[in-house]
């Protein structure tokens, strides 16, 4: 287990989910979906949205909850596999929009679906060392799946921002983290290609389940904790079934994961997926509650975290829209609109 010498925690958090959805049955209508669908619907970014715009809104929500001025941020880090530019950081633009520039570190992180939690772990280190007081770690993605591919049912959009600061100011103190990484080619996208390749059933047991379980079990062991010690748990959610299954394997109950299980409604928000689930849990958690988090990124790795909610949470959560508010404003689009907005029509 890793933990900084100076205790740290989340002092503000912010979610963002685009308002548009496409129903899985609508995708199945276009492509043969007789085998059932992995989620009910997924979020779709509007035509003027991308990883940068979604990061900005999630980050504004985190800053609003923390009530610190943006010039006090030491770093603005964006984890994503869908940056709008191949070369030109998202973090600089997000930092400008927040008003955190110019005396700030900014960078983009990349690790498939756990790029955001990489930034979170690094933020723990930076704040925990005393080098920084406040660091913003963002996971955001507008994921793309090849039309007709199984991935198309789930590749979704969303952003979550976690503002890391000293534990004394936190809404949730981070008790510790583990990170488990192997070179496992379950899912990848070569440079200059549009859509990723995935290893079908290879993405399951040898990749997602083994990796995530390893990080989680080690953290539980090192903390001397049982799943039942936690009020809530959230796992990376590439679909509905994987997080349910890994929860069962680890000994967590359906009730523990219910508030943070957003994938049935919004699909897989990639770098934001588990972190959005954490935001949704923070929206309902009470002081003293413990929260277990485990992310997953193909390639492959998992970061697990244990958090303990403080007395500061209830008042601070009201300062920005709840995850539920974003979930509630759902506007369904058909496949044609989805194809137009997501660049799937050949225009020239």
């Amino acid at each position: 287990m890793m933990k900084p010498e100076r205790p740290v925690g989340i002092i503000g958090y912010g979610a963002y989910i685009p308002r548009f959805r496409i129903a899985a049955r609508e995708i199945a209508r276009i492509w043969d979906g007789a085998g059932g669908t992995p989620v009910d619907s997924k979020s779709v970014p509007g035509p003027d949205e991308d990883t940068i715009t979604m990061s900005i809104e999630a980050a504004r929500n985190a800053l609003a909850r923390a009530r610190i001025t943006p010039d006090r941020l030491s770093a603005v880090w964006v984890g994503s596999e869908s940056p709008p530019y191949s070369v030109k950081p998202s973090g600089t633009l997000v930092a400008e929009a927040l008003g955190a520039t110019p005396w700030v570190s900014a960078a983009d992180w990349e690790f498939a679906c756990k790029a955001g939690s990489e930034a979170l772990t690094a933020a723990m280190g930076m704040v925990g060392s005393g080098m920084a007081q406040y660091v913003l770690a963002i996971g955001a993605d507008t994921a793309q799946g090849r039309p007709g591919d199984a991935l198309e049912y789930t590749a979704a959009a969303g952003a979550a921002a976690l503002l890391v600061g000293p534990a004394a100011e936190a809404v949730a103190v981070i008790e510790g983290t583990t990170s488990y990484v192997t070179d496992t080619p379950d899912f990848f996208r070569r440079a200059d290609t549009t859509y990723p390749v995935h290893g079908h059933r290879f993405t399951g047991e040898p990749a997602y389940f083994n990796t995530l379980r390893s990080a989680a079990e080690r953290l539980l062991h090192d903390l001397g904790a049982q799943p039942s010690d936690f009020t809530y748990a959230v796992f990376h959610q590439p679909n509905t079934r994987f997080p349910q299954t890994v929860a069962r394997q680890l000994g967590f109950t359906p009730q523990q994961i219910a508030p943070g299980l957003l994938s049935p409604r919004i699909g897989n928000a990639y770098s934001a997926a588990a972190l959005l689930g954490l935001c949704a849990i923070l929206d309902v958690a009470k002081p003293g509650d413990r929260i277990f988090v485990a992310t997953y990124g193909s390639g492959a790795g998992s970061d697990a975290y244990a958090l303990r909610v403080t007395e500061a949470l209830p008042e601070r959560r009201e300062r920005a829209p709840l995850t539920a508010a974003y979930l509630a404003r759902e506007t369904f689009v058909d496949y044609a609109v989805y194809a137009k907005w997501r660049g799937k029509l050949v225009m020239e």
Binding site: G46, P47, D48, E49, D50, T53, I56, E57, A97
Partner: peptide, 11 residues
């Protein structure tokens, strides 16, 4: 008269 709030988007 609809109340609105600013968001940063792609122009």
């Amino acid at each position: 008269d609809m109340p609105v709030e600013m968001v940063t988007r792609r122009l």
